[in-house]
Design a protein around this nucleic acid. Structure first.
Lengths: 238, 238
DNA sequence: ACCTGAACACCGTTCAAGT
DNA sequence: ACCTGAACACCGTTCAAGT
């Protein structure tokens, strides 16, 4: 108990510490550790404080709310989304690689999606950086400037929705007692194609149902958006 | 206080009432009233009980959790999604009408989306009914049976993601201080097309940015899926 | 400026007791 | 079977007091 090993920090007395104990970086890292260990239900301000060896109220010197913590986590994760394809390769392939990695990152962080989808990017530098890279890729592919954001938003909406689907249980479409009233649906569910399909690289290997649906929709969206790009109306002048 | 007007019910004594006070229908209706008045933050078990003039614990004789209440609400809302197009009209138009109404319903109920996306349809009759109608429409349009569910899932993912986008504030893409580091993105945001576009009926009238993005993505998805339907691989036989 | 400790106003859920 | 009332184990957030 009283040996010199500082494996467990001693209780801190009240008052300003010699140098700050917390900060955005350490809070983000602790939040990620908590999420990895216990999931989002385990991410509470109390648990976060406990892991950082401070009182819960100390967190509010660095973030103004729990939403703020979620924004820190979100922005950190955005750095993990693959934007490398937009720097050089063809547009189709760049979008494909970006979309798959974007979905895969947030499939494990779906509770962030309602937050991201509604929060301004003003204080999320990694997020802005990602958008800049994607916009540059669209620009380089000759996209009409006034349509780029709408195309990105459409892709993102599909990506976010698909991230939820990754977490759906296998039996989500089991109609149970209601199957008798829905014969075509029940049949379609039973015959649902799975076991092989195209991944981000177009390789042929076993994939889950959610991967198959994502691949199908993503290719449709990429092709469909590209076709509409050609038909795009000229930008209106006021 | 003691006149005969039963405007406010008298406090009920403990013990089984002469006939049940609650039930799924009344709970659903009360939940919807609460959501309409105070939003989802106002939907608590306490508030629900108060509106129904019972103790919070009484609710647990009819639902096993708050998630159960959300499932009741979700299934009720599904009846409001427009599936009429699948009974007769052309596939493209049926999907368009369905998708717009589906998005519009859940744009006002985004907190349900994480629940729907992951919960089995086993005890949601209206939801199963909707899936049956949509499946029938795909079937009638000659869709390969083993691809129907994946196509529906892809469309639904886009719809759910887009429902969040409807609630995004106008300034969501304002990079603020970070604008200098993201010139192309900032420019694209500034020139974002808006003010007119195509709604579900293809009519020309003012639409919000989220409507424009949804319309763009939906048309791309419809066209892309249709094109892939033609190229669909034959169903594998085991 | 940045921490502690106590307090506030909530949550969803359980369970014995009553009829 | 279906209600009440009390209790449990939490939440996020605020704020005075301390250095």
């Amino acid at each position: 108990m009283e040996n010199g090993a500082p494996a467990v920090e001693a209780r801190r007395r009240a008052g300003r510490p010699p140098h700050p104990v917390l900060g955005p970086g350490r809070i983000t890292k602790a939040a990620l550790r908590l999420i990895a260990r216990d999931g989002y239900k385990g991410l509470t301000m109390s648990a976060l404080a406990r892991l950082l060896n401070v009182a819960p109220s100390a967190l509010y010197n660095h973030v103004s709310s729990k939403q703020d913590v979620l924004l820190l986590v979100e922005d950190h994760l955005m750095a993990g989304v693959d934007i490398s394809g937009f720097e050089a390769g063809p547009w189709h392939q760049a979008v494909r690689g970006w979309a798959w990695s974007y979905r895969n990152v947030f499939a494990r962080h779906t509770p962030l999606i309602p937050v991201i989808a509604v929060l301004p990017v003003t204080n999320a530098p990694q997020t802005v950086k990602m958008y800049e890279a994607v916009t540059a890729g669209f620009h380089a592919a000759g996209w009409p400037p006034d349509q780029i954001i709408d195309a990105i938003v459409a892709l993102e909406s599909f990506i976010f929705g698909s991230a939820f689907d990754v977490n759906a249980p296998a039996e989500i479409f089991n109609a149970g007692e209601l199957a008798a009233d829905a014969p075509l649906f029940t049949q379609a569910v039973a015959s649902r194609a799975s076991g092989s399909g195209s991944g981000p690289g177009g390789d042929e290997r076993p994939v889950s149902p959610s991967d198959t649906a994502f691949g199908l929709g993503l290719e449709a969206l990429i092709d469909g958006l590209w076709a509409q790009r050609a038909l795009a109306p000229k930008a209106r002048h006021p």
